[in-house]
Design a protein around this nucleic acid. Structure first.
Length: 636
RNA sequence: GCCCCCGUAGCUCAGUGGACAGAGCAACUGGCUUCGAACCAGUAGGUCGCACGUUCGAGCCGUGCCGGGGGUACCA
């Protein structure tokens, strides 16, 4: 259920008051913000500045007129307790205790989900994770999955139908490299390391082997050729390896509560001839050009950027090659076919079969080359598409969207979103801990799967859980707190911010961390538990005559949830939700510490009100944490 | 060359054109006989890279510089 937010209602009130006081129409929504002068009011608006000119009065005089009109509406049970004007022209509004009480009641009746919106009827396809199936997930992949998963949770709350796709590139060189290593090199496993970690090591070993013996590269071509033919024992082996790695990667993400709706395999896109269909469309639509000379002679290209340019004495082309002079298909080409399919524009479809059940009970499907399952739901046909992909792939992503445009699908191109996120590097300290030589003055070191310079996602979760196990007897609690800490670490920065991964930061359990959020909820649930034991109801109750600042601040913070969620959805980033969650937890912690124990409260009115307040916080904050994928616990 | 991102406290980062620029960490002071101190209350720490411009008002918008990173592959 979606209730109109306090700000929406206040905005209308201010607009009406301004129109009445000034005797002139006020167009559009009046922008309202949470006051950063809580001594003056709960909300503030600068609308007087914009109206001053037309009203032919100074801003402060306009603000005073609006405040007087708003204040006139105050009274018993009214929404607004009072309004004031302050220099140089702000209007400050204070909510009444009765309104705050109604808000607490509303939060409880909504089960905390006051930010949930009615279904919009549109479908958003979100692609994230997308790990090459030849290695264990590292913290860079983990950032991708955390961002994608939280954006999915945000969009679902905003009323969108969301389908999560995890693209598996099982035909690229990376898988081929590991298969070469497994078949032709004897790489000893380290102890009882899991298969995905072993493959990460093999991948590094293969790079060294190529350098020492270039003849080995022929083996890679051999593997790739067999994959392209799609049958034979080598192809079956590749398929088996990729499948085992995907299973391992899914298990890693499942630890953090991250799931999917469907796995889309690159080999299926090729095997079903999706690219051939897309190619013909592009060629016939005039979007492609076959080059007979120049740097791309013999290639099919999509003209892009400045075309052919002279740079530092060399002739280079900004056009994007889709089919090489050898006849092979580039990744971008496959991505064009994939993107067309996501929108239902290809005129082709996969068949599907069930991959398995996931931790949250949702089924996971996979594309299939055979007839698949008759029970499979319909996938793709999205109205919008969000691709969670490293910022370094911005250029090929733009090529993909431009190709849609050139095929006449401008609307779909506009509804294609590259959710670009910054790189996860290692801090100098983290790199040294991994045994990597770091130059003096070098702040960060790039991770490298080929070079074996990386921190694995499982390793991060394991180390966090181990640290937390020192403080709790329950290993399930330790791992749940570890998940919260790891996810918050990945979400608290903006999408475009590069992250310098640092063990000291990532393993912290105090301050602005996931632990802080979980601890606030644990404290609230501790109160509710004690109240229940004492037989005190936690149902919403009327406010006491005098409302403490900590109580007011807590209610007002909770009321900001819908806007925080909407902001996050508009920008396709979980960061505003992460920041909001921390601030709300801080408001609750201050409330907790700066007021007496509710269980021992002697004033029955105060006790009843605060019990209801804690109940509302528990419900609402549980929804906030779930949006971030942070487990809500009763005890830690 | 062209395109994109970043530059805010010692460090890591927030800051939808609005009031005195915030948080965490690190440093320093206090606070557990009370619903769990993984917390709270406080002190200190800033030419918001630089310069012009737009605006009643700029960390935010525009232009030009200076630093750092990335892209501009017949890799992904």
């Amino acid at each position: 259920m979606h209730v109109k937010s306090i700000e929406d209602i206040l905005s209308e009130r201010v607009r009406d008051a301004a129109a009445g006081a000034l005797g002139m129409p006020v167009d559009g929504a009046v922008h309202l913000e949470v006051s950063n002068r809580p001594d003056l009011g709960d909300f503030a608006t600068s609308v007087a500045f914009t109206l001053a000119k037309a009203a032919r009065r100074p801003p402060l005089a306009v603000a005073e007129l609006i405040a007087a009109a708003l204040g006139g509406a105050a009274g018993d049970g009214a929404m607004i307790a009072g309004a004031s004007a302050s220099a140089p022209g702000f209007v400050n509004v204070r909510l009444s205790a009765a309104e705050l009480s109604r808000s607490v009641d509303g939060i409880c009746r909504a089960g905390g989900r006051i930010a949930q919106r009615a279904p919009t009827g549109d479908k958003v396809v979100v692609e994230h994770t997308n790990i090459n199936p030849n290695k264990a997930a590292h913290v860079g992949h983990f950032r991708n999955a955390c961002l994608g998963d939280s954006v999915v949770r945000i969009l679902r709350r905003l009323g969108h139908t969301v389908e999560v796709q995890n693209y598996i590139d099982d035909t690229g060189v990376q898988v081929a490299d590991v298969v070469v290593g497994l078949r032709f090199l004897e790489v000893p496993p380290q102890g009882d390391q899991p298969f995905d970690r072993y493959c990460s090591d093999v991948y590094v070993a293969v790079q060294h082997a190529y350098a020492a013996d270039p003849a080995l590269l022929a083996r890679r071509r051999e593997v790739q050729a067999s994959v392209e033919e799609g049958h034979g024992p080598l192809a079956a082996f590749v398929h088996d390896v990729a499948g085992r790695i995907v299973t391992a990667n899914l298990a890693t993400m499942a630890r953090a509560g991250i799931g999917y709706d469907v796995l889309t395999w690159e080999s299926h896109i090729l095997g079903l001839g999706f690219w051939q269909t897309a190619f013909e469309r592009l060629r016939d639509g005039g979007a492609l050009r076959f080059e007979t000379d120049g740097p791309n002679a013999g290639c099919w290209v999509v003209p892009f950027g400045a075309g052919t340019v002279e740079l530092e004495g060399k002739t280079v082309s900004e056009d994007k090659v889709l089919v090489t002079s050898q006849g092979t298909i580039t990744y971008t080409a496959k991505d064009i076919a994939y993107q067309l399919w996501k929108f239902g524009l290809l005129g082709r479809d996969f068949s599907y079969r069930l991959w398995g059940a996931q931790a949250d009970g949702r089924p996971l499907w996979t594309t299939a080359l055979d007839d698949g399952s008759p029970d499979a739901p319909a996938f793709a046909h999205g109205d919008r598409v969000v691709n969670v992909i490293d910022v370094r792939q911005s250029y090929p992503q733009q090529v993909v969207y431009e190709c849609l445009r050139r095929l006449g699908f401008a609307a779909q191109a506009d509804r294609s979103h590259h959710l670009a996120y910054g790189v996860v590097n290692l801090s100098a300290a983290a790199a040294r801990e991994l045994g990597v030589a770091v130059d003096e003055g070098q702040a960060v070191v790039a991770m490298s799967g080929r070079g074996g310079i990386q921190v694995f996602a499982d390793e991060l979760l394991d180390r966090l859980a181990a640290r937390l196990a020192e403080r709790t007897a329950d290993p399930d609690v330790a791992s749940a707190v570890a998940v919260g800490a790891a996810r918050y670490y990945m979400l608290k920065c903006g999408n475009t911010q590069d992250i310098a991964f640092d063990f000291d930061d990532a393993l912290r359990t105090t301050g602005e961390t996931g632990v802080y959020l979980q601890y606030a909820l644990v404290r609230a649930r501790g109160i509710l538990r004690r109240l229940a034991e004492a037989g005190v109801s936690a149902a919403p109750a009327p406010p006491p005559p005098v409302l403490a600042d900590a109580d007011r601040a807590l209610v007002l913070h909770m009321l900001r949830w819908p806007r925080a969620l909407a902001t996050a959805g508009d920008a396709l980033t979980a960061q505003p939700v992460a920041k909001f969650a921390f601030e709300l937890a801080a408001a609750f912690s201050a409330f907790y510490d700066n007021t007496g124990p509710i269980v021992q409260e002697t004033d029955a009115g105060v006790q009843a009100w605060r019990a209801g307040l804690v109940q509302a916080f528990d419900l609402l904050f549980g929804d906030v944490l779930d949006t971030l994928g942070i487990p809500a616990l009763d005890r830690i």
